[in-house]
Simulated assay, not measured.
Amino acid sequence: MEMYIKYVLIGLAIAMPVGAITVEMTKQGLKNGFVHGWAVGLGGMTLDTTLIIAMYLGFASFLSLPYIQIPLWLVGAGFLAYLGYDSIRNADQDITPANEKVKKSFWKTYRNGLLVAISPGNLIFWVSVFGAVLSDSYRSAGKESFAIAACGVLCGILIHDLGLVSLVSVTRKVMSRRLIRLVSVAAGTLLLGFSFYFLYEFVMSLWAYIL
């Protein structure tokens, strides 16, 4: 139990910093409520779970190869640029008042969360930092310990996501349409910022690899 709680706290620590997933969750939660904010979180957790399974099967070393990582920076920049542009262009669209039924597709929002999660920052973090933690757990206590650690981390991320979208869904009830639109524009700008950062990392990583 002590080990499980430890990894729950690690999961919370992983999810706390403001990143692209947090930005998209906040935006969708404000525009369309709890379920759509949560859909973004589910998209992110889908990739988290997939990476945990990949680590368990020994694929982490494959993801850490330079010629695999470098193109991921460019792919991630493309995904985030698309989502950022879409967020700004449609800032005044798909806003559902708190007292009306949401018409936007749950699966479209889930897809956005998945696209944001498939970014080099997320992948490299899992492989280089958390992958080492899970690998150590696997080596020291075997498969059972690995499963407990993985479940603890996912639970920590889940607690963070539910807390965030709950707070956002309550906040949207007192926000005007204009303020929600401004938040959507700000979120899109942040996503574009992440995109430019990934593009910069792609150029620098490619340059270092060539030299």
Rank of each mutant, 00 (worst) to 15 (best):
H36M: 03
D161N: 07
A20C: 07
I53T: 13
M175H: 07
W107P: 01
L115E: 00
V35N: 04
V185N: 06
M175R: 01
P66T: 11
M25W: 04
L72W: 07
L164Y: 05
V133P: 01
Y197I: 09
Y4G: 05
L164F: 07
L65T: 08
Y110W: 10
A150E: 05
S87T: 04
S64C: 10
M3V: 08
E201T: 11
Y138V: 12
L83V: 06
R177L: 01
A208I: 13
D94L: 15
F196G: 07
S137V: 15
L114Y: 15
L162C: 14
G37L: 00
D161M: 09
P17E: 07
V185R: 10
G78D: 10
A20L: 09
L42G: 03
V18T: 10
L74I: 08
Y56C: 12
Q28L: 08
S176Q: 00
W38D: 00
A81L: 12
L9N: 04
I14V: 14
W107L: 09
Y7A: 05
I53S: 14
I88H: 05
L206A: 13
N90M: 03
Y7G: 04
L158S: 08
L164P: 03
V102W: 00
S169M: 03
I52K: 01
A187D: 07
P97E: 06
F34W: 03
Y197E: 09
L191F: 13
I210P: 08
I148Y: 14
T50D: 07
Y197K: 12
M204W: 13
R172C: 01
F106S: 02
A208N: 12
L192C: 13
V116Y: 05
D86Y: 14
L179M: 10
I180H: 00
Y110T: 02
L74K: 09
T171R: 07
L51E: 09
T46P: 10
K31S: 10
G11A: 04
M175C: 08
S166V: 00
I5W: 12
M55A: 11
S128T: 15
V102F: 02
A15H: 03
H36P: 01
W126A: 05
F202Y: 10
S184M: 11
P120I: 11
F196R: 11
V129F: 11
G44V: 06
F34H: 03
K103Y: 11
D48L: 08
G29I: 01
Y82T: 12
R172K: 10
G41Y: 03
I52Y: 05
Y138S: 09
K31H: 12
L47V: 06
L182M: 14
N122P: 04
G131Q: 05
G29C: 02
P120L: 10
M45S: 06
E144I: 13
Q69S: 13
A149H: 05
A150W: 05
G19Q: 06
P71Y: 08
I68S: 09
V35Q: 02
N112P: 04
T22L: 12
N32G: 10
W38Y: 06
Q93N: 08
